[in-house]
Amino acid sequence: MNPTVDALREKFGAAIQRADVVWGETTVVVERTRVAEIVRWLHDDPGQSYVYLSDVTAVENRDVEQPLEVVWHLRSLAFRRFLRLKALLPKGTPLEVPSVFPIFKSADWMERECFDMFGVKFVGHPDLRRLLMWEGYKEGFPLRKDIPLLGRFSRAEQLRQALAANPEARYSKEELSIADAFEDLPQDMRARLRSGEKTGE
């Protein structure tokens, strides 16, 4: 058992619901509303120093009674420890957990992917949009158990909708837009753009 578990129990008490060890890896089930708080403490406390978030994902079990689980994989480089946090989201409740983006910048795309695939809403994420599927994908959240493997629509409809998408759609609000980033450009490039020089197209 990871010694962090005892420290967590001491610090957060009832918010730590369960802890077990599978194949030498410790899993801690925590109160879902306090995830951000707990991760913040794990990250900041010098005795824990979990400074590396290696994954954010979710699990939906085939048993419909089982809650959907959101999983965080944390690693402490200083103490060479691995900790898996889980938050249980029972069926019928809103799929919402706090975002850990303010603590780990790397959570950005992981949370977006998790939202894209499972529809889990990470409260506090600054830009929670789909990551893998395109904007305007209408068939729901594809890794959920209630979505058939082939998707909800027929092949013909899927293809029609996909081809109707704009291939030049912006998938990143900041990075792909020259117009928005104009002020950040080098001086000479701004001068050239002002004089009417065309970029691309």
């Binding site: 058939p148 027929s154 092949r155 013909a156 409809e157 293809l159």
Partner: peptide
Amino acid sequence: PPSAINELSEPFGNAVHQTRSGL
């Protein structure tokens, strides 16, 4: 038309042989 293709491809979801009819 797509509606006919949908009907033909039921109950098999894989419409590999159906979607290439000029869609």
